[in-house]
Amino acid sequence: MLEEFTWPFIVGHLNYWLFIVLMMTGLYIVVAKGNLVKKIVGLNIFQTSVFMLYISMGKVTGGTAPIFPIDLNIDPDVVYSNPLPHVLILTAIVVGIATTSLGLALIVRIREEYDSIEEERILEIEQAIANAENQRHGQAMGGRAT
């Protein structure tokens, strides 16, 4: 396996690895942090890094942005970068912001109901509710499974 790591291979893959590091940083924020807003920021970083990974797939060395001259006189020698990942990512960005805005709206409501945006505090409150319920309705298992 090690002999694969030739110099051109490393140079040709370095940027993928960089994006992976970024993605994982984002993912770590989402999974490890308890603040609801921070989770959303983490999600954004995670997604944006995935987007960059996509775009970097479409890059052709020596290529240029995939827009023809306005008169459509196309010079056959010009190399264009792959436009398809751009299209996909445009869609994905929009989906991302849609999700973000919903998430934030939820956070606002959670803040109003729980008076906190910290996961731990919310879990405590919910545990209390669940305990009260169990007292009323007899024994139970579970609660909020997180």
Binding site: V37, I40, V41, N44, T48, F51, M52, I55, S56, G58, K59, G63, T64, A65, P66, I67, Y80, S81, P85, H86, I89, L90, I93, V94, G96, I97, T100, S101, L104, I107, V108
Partner: peptide, 27 residues
């Protein structure tokens, strides 16, 4: 630099613009 001008435009408008505003609004 990766030739994705459309995407860059959108990312700047969305990531740096709208979502920052929304996040601030939430804060």
């Amino acid at each position: 630099t990766l030739d994705a001008v459309d995407v860059a435009f959108t990312e700047a408008a969305v990531g740096a613009g709208i979502s920052t505003v929304l996040l601030l609004g939430t804060l």
